[in-house]
Each structure stands twice: as C-alpha cells, then as structure tokens.
Amino acid sequence: MKIEKAKEQRKKQITVGFLYETGKSRFKLRSLTDEVGFENKITDKNLHRPGLALAGYVDLFRYDRVQVIGNTESKYLKSLSPDRRMHAMARLFEFKIPCIMMTDNNTLDDRIIAAAAEKQIPVFSTSYETTKFQYFLADFLDDQFAPQIVVHGSLVDVYGVGVLIVGRSGIGKSEIALDLVERGHRLVADDVVMVTRKGEGILIGAGTDLVKHFMEIRGLGLIDVRSMFGIRAIRYQKRVEVIVELEEWKSIRDYTRTGLDDQVIKVLDVEIPMVRLPIFPGKNVTVITEVISLNYLLKHYGYDAAKEFAKRLEGVIGQKTKGNRAIEYFEHDFE
C-alpha cells in the first residue's frame, strides 16, 4: 500500500452529547437544558458568534455551527428589555442550531432556556472567558474533524525525530524498528499507524488502541515491546517528521548521491521530507536511520551538510591549492 494512495478519512459529524461527555471537565461545561438535543449533530469544526443574528440580521447566519455567546453578546442581550431579549433569542431558535455555548458563566432567562429546550437546542455554560474557550473548543473540534489515514509502516522516535518507515510487506520495517528500540529509541506504532493532520502543517502519528506496542517479527510472531523493553522504549504519539521508504536495490534507480536534491512527499496535503533507501543484505539500515534523524536535526538547526560541502567546493574551484592534504606538515605526534 503506497502512502500516497492511502484512503483519507475524516469524521463527518459528532453529536453534541459526545462533545459534552468528552469536554465537560476540559471546557468546564455545565448543561442548562439537561440532556436535551444531545443527539444533535455537529458537522463543522468552526465556531460562530451570533452577534448580528441577535440584532436581527440573519442572512449568512451560520446556524449549523456551534454558537458561542460571548461577553459582547451577553452584554447586548442584557441591555434589551426582557421581551425584546426573548424575541432576539427566539429568532435564533428558528434555525437548526446544534448547541449554544455561553461563556464567562453567563446564563439566560429561564423562559429563554425553556424555549431553547422546546426547540431541542441544548444550552451550555462555561466558566472560561470567551477567547480562551473558543481557543480550546476550536482546537478540540479541529482534532475531531481532522483528516486521517492509516499507514502500513513503523513510526519510531529517533533522537526526538519522528521517523515513519514504509515499504512493501516483508521488507523488514518491524525488524528495523526493533533494532532502533534496542538502541534506545522509542516505538510509537508498528504496522498500523494512524496519521492525523493537526492544524495546517503538522502530522501526528499514533498506534491503535488494540495494538498499542505489539509488533510482529517474521519467524518469531507477536511480541510486546512495552513489556519486553519497558516504558522507555515506547511513546503514544509523535509528530511525523521524516519518511523513510525502504526498497530493494534497483541499479536503474537514480538514488541521490549528494543530498542536495531534497525529496518531499505529500501526506494529507502536508509536505514531509522523504528519503528513499535502497537496502541489501549486510546493510545497516538502523544506523542509517539514526543518521537520517541527526541530519534532519542538523538541517533544522540550519546546517545542511550537502550545501555546506558544495559551498566549500565552490570556494576552492579556481584556487591554485587544489587537492592538498588536510594537514600541511605532519609533525611528530601522529594524530
């Protein structure tokens, strides 16, 4: 299974009940309408502030999003007479709103709450202030609706760099992962890696709940890395930073010789550096994988060995002293 061809999936909806159950302590939510409308569907990761809709302008009103009534809206509502307040809210309730969130512990008149409940619109209150609450909730919804793929490969944290090893079945991904673990690196997932896009440019990989840190080694069967190597050998999630694709050596393939031509691969629309690694018996792929990680780190900190060498070469071209020994004169200690 090629990583580019992996089928992208994402949640189409979550229920308000799920949001409440998962988020009530995290977002300090309490329900003002009991369990009314818990089966309402949230289908959009974005939030909406219904200020203009409250004032009567409902064109382009994104009623299908979670509605956040912040301090501004609450202050505005309080400035109205009770009847006009009821009227302003009732106008919102005409729409199929998934739920309403009141920030800063604000609430609504009892009869407005009752009207919301009658329309099956749940109303929640949080003690967080609006900006903070929107930040938390948007991040949560972004994660819930994030695109995801299942990758057949091994994800290992090598010197803090998330290296995803891919390649055809039986080429030795798990063996390399195991070798890396033995050298003190940390396994995230083997064989089934769930890759999720976080925000715009970050990929996070994790294993599945069932498999966790089990792996299959051909000829041995299933092993549990966590019980065998202990807690230091595993982690639950890691950003995917480099992809290493293993393949049988093909003499016709044009493998990079300098590293100047950086290769990238697009996964879930995020560009990730990729190294295509030819393997053959006797080649120590584990050490090369470590070097790939270290090289990635060096580049991250601004040092690109290939470019540095190219620069040095350009400096020497045209000079008379070409091909000299690194040391001009060997003195007595032969270091």
Binding site: K7, H152, D191, V192, E216
Partner: peptide
Amino acid sequence: FTILKDEFEINGKSIIGVMT
C-alpha cells in the same frame, strides 16, 4: 492486498493490521 472495513483500510499481508 488491502482490506477495508468501516472506513478502516489496512494491509492484508500484515497480521497486526488484520487483527486491528
């Protein structure tokens, strides 16, 4: 060989995948 179940897509030659 790929197996799809409930939007889940795995490599059918991987025992861990199939058991997932």
